[in-house]
Each structure stands twice: as C-alpha cells, then as structure tokens.
Design a protein around this nucleic acid. Structure first.
Lengths: 126, 126
DNA sequence: CCTTTGTGCAACTAAGTAGTTGCACTTCAT
DNA sequence: ATGAAGTGCAACTACTTAGTTGCACAAAGG
C-alpha cells in the first residue's frame, strides 16, 4: 500500500509523538463532515479519476443543480480537500488529498488506543 | 503501526480487489458523519481510555445533558462504533472500532487513486 | 456588437441535527 | 415498602444543511 507509506513519509498523518487525539478538533470536524456526504465523495472520486473539472461539468454527472454541486465543492475546499484555479471564464477544481492524512492520523491514533486496550482485555468474552 | 496491519489482517478495510470507492455509501455516510462531531470523538476516546461507561457517567465529563450524550452514543452505535450491554439498572457503552477499518479503507482507496494520478502529473507546479 | 456559455450572489424552502426539559418506568438498598 | 439512582420516551426549540430558483455579471466567438 503505497499511500500508507506516503502518508507517513509526509510526516503529516501523525505530526509528532503526542496523540492527534483530542487535538485538531476543528480540522477533523470539517474533514469528516465533508467526507460524510456521498455526493461529495463521488465528486472527489470523479475529480481524482477524470482530473480537474468545473462545477458546471461536474453537475452534469449528477442529478443536481450546478449551484448545489458548487456548494459541495466549497465544503470540500473548506476541508482542504480541493482547491480551484481560474482559467478563462472557467474555474477548475482539483483534488488536494493531503488532509486525508489527518483523518487517517486520527483513526490510527484512536485505533492505537484500542490496541492498547485490547492488550489489557485480551481474553474478554466479547 | 500495529493497527494498520491489524486492519488489513482483518480483511475488513479493503474487502476485495474491487474498489471500496463508490460502494458502501450508506455505511460511510453514518461512519464519517459520526466522526464529524468533536463531542462524539471525545466520547469514543474516553471510552477507549477509561473503558466502558454509562451515559450518565459520560455526561458528567461534558457540559452536556445525559440525554444529549445519549443521543451521541446512539449515533455512534448506529455507525457501528459502539455497542451496549445492560448490567443491572445500568447500560454500559463500549467501543467497537472495527468500522474504523471501513473508513480507512475508503481513504486508502481514494488516496490510491490519487497516487496513480500523481504518477501521471508527477512534475506539476502543484 | 451581440449572443452564448460559464460563473457569482442572494433569497428562499425543506429537512435534518444538537440540545433541552419533563415525566414515567425500572432496579437497588435501606 | 419506599426512596434514590439510572434509564427510556416524547415533545419542543434553535440552528444548520441540502437543494432550489432567479438574476446579474464576465468572457469568448461569430
């Protein structure tokens, strides 16, 4: 899994020894919040697979209005998952999935706690 | 990172070769949705660190009502992150972080797409 | 210049969510 | 048996979010 490594190579996912847990509240809110919507995940996936695109084009791939799609894009951008670039009269949105490392960071730290707990509860009836 | 390995050992995070992407919509919705709230993440962390607890006890650790906490617990449970067990007149909530693997699965698959894209765009101005 | 295509802004509706309060019900201990 | 502690259910408020529509503004292209 190339990415797992990449995430850690960046040093982004687990910024330091001190746990991500309890910290990063705001960032994690917007991040997980952004990922909580299926439309938004689809948009991210579309942008990843087919490359940068405009809100208008993206809207054609969904049953939604351009405006609705635009709002989703803005949510994703606020979460740091997207950025945009103006070309002519067009605005191209592009994925910037670095923040995903933050999400993975929290999950891994949390799962880590769980591991330690498991060590103590090893043979519990479950 | 023991957990990363554990997640894959389970075979949960990336169920098969076919991408998690586009699938698991509902599960990911509730999962990311559940994680999007700081109070809920705190509850999970508390339960992990201090072990199973009742809604009443958990409520004492927050500025919130027992009822509010209970609703959060129900959201977490609906996401599969918690389960509960009745003891006497008490109801103990306990963490079941297996679903976290699902979240990591999506993120990894997505980041994977990004990796492939990166291969093609390698020397882009960023 | 004027039409087309794409974007930006704003108001509005509908529905979901966080949180509260109040009260009824169960379990335990004296 | 009776009171205390813990839980369950329901109604209600305030706020946020998804989505819409309508229209004004900017950039190409004939």
């Amino acid at each position: 899994m190339a990415v797992g490594i990449a995430l850690h190579r960046d040093g982004v996912s687990r910024p330091s020894a001190r746990s991500t847990v309890t910290a990063n509240s705001g960032a994690l809110d917007t991040l997980f919040g952004a990922l909580a919507d299926p439309t938004r995940r689809l948009l991210v996936e579309h942008l990843l697979i087919k490359g940068p695109a405009t809100a208008t084009v993206l809207a054609e791939t969904t049953p939604l209005t351009r405006q609705a799609v635009l709002k989703h894009l803005q949510v994703l951008e606020a979460a740091g998952l997207l950025d945009h670039e103006r070309v002519g009269r067009e605005v191209r949105y592009r994925v910037t999935p670095r923040p995903l490392a933050t999400a993975v960071g929290w999950i891994l730290d949390t799962a880590d706690l769980w591991d330690k707990r498991i060590d103590r509860l090893r043979r519990l009836p479950t």
